[in-house]
Amino acid sequence: MNLTAVASIYKFEMARTFRSIFQSVISPVVSTSLYFVVFGAAIGSRIDTVEGIQYGAFIVPGLMMLQMLMQSVTNAALGIYFPKFIGTIYEVQSAPVSVIEIVMGYVGAAATKSMMIGLIILATASLFVDLQIQHPLAMLAFMVLTCISFALFGFIIGIWAGNFEQLNLIPMLVITPLVFLGGAFYSISMLPEAWQTIALFNPVVYLVSGFRWSFFSMSDVSVGLSLLAIAGFLILCLAVITWIFKTGWKLRS
C-alpha cells in the first residue's frame, strides 16, 4: 500500500480547500441561517412542534444532511474532475498507485471537508435553537458514513462527467429533490399514506431518519434499517469504483 501517495493526495486536496476556506464555509453558514429564518421562524411559528420536538430543532439534522450530501458529492466530483479537465490527471495515472489509494486520497479529503461543514452548521444552528444530542457518537458515525459514501458517489460522477454542466447535474437534479422529499424538513408520518410508501424508496429517508434518531431518539424508520441502507449504498459505490479502475472506464483509453 502506497500510503505516502494517499497522504499526498489528501494533503494536496485539503490545501486546496483551505485556500478557499472562506467561500467553503460562508456559503453553508449563510444558507443554513436562511433556512432557519424561513423554515424555523416563518413556518415554525405555525408548526410549533413535530412529535414533541421544537420545529426549529427538528430540522437541524435534515439541514446538516442536505449540506453534507451536497458538499460530499460536489467536492469529490470536482476533486477528480478538475485534474481531468486541466490534464494533470496524467500524473495520478502514471504513478505507482492503485485504485484504493487514489480513492482514499480524493474521497477522504472530500469527506473531511463535508464533515467540517456539517459541524459548522451544527454550531450555527445551536445559535438559533436549543439542541441536545442524545447519541453523539451515533451522530458522528452517521456523519462519517454519509460523507464517505456520498463522496464516493461524487467521485464516480466526477469521473463520468464530460463537462461542467454534467458535473452540476446530479447534485442539482438528484440530491436536492431527494433530500427535500426525504423528510429533511418534516416527518414522513406527516405525509398521506400513499406518499409514505413511495417515500420508503427514497434512500435519503433512511439517512435523515437515522441521523435524526441520533439527536432526538425518534425516527421514521428503524435505526438498523438506516444503517443497512447507508452501508448498502457505500458498498454499491465501492463496487462501481472498483469496476471503473479495472476497466479504465473514462480514465484510460
Binding site: 501517495a5 497522504a7 499526498s8 500524473e91 505507482p96
Partner: peptide, 14 residues
C-alpha cells in the same frame, strides 16, 4: 515547490 513535492509523494517517496 508544493506541486513538485506532491509529485514525489504520489510516487511513494519520503
Amino acid at each position: 515547490i508544493d506541486t513538485v513535492k506532491f509529485s514525489r509523494g504520489l510516487f511513494g517517496k519520503g
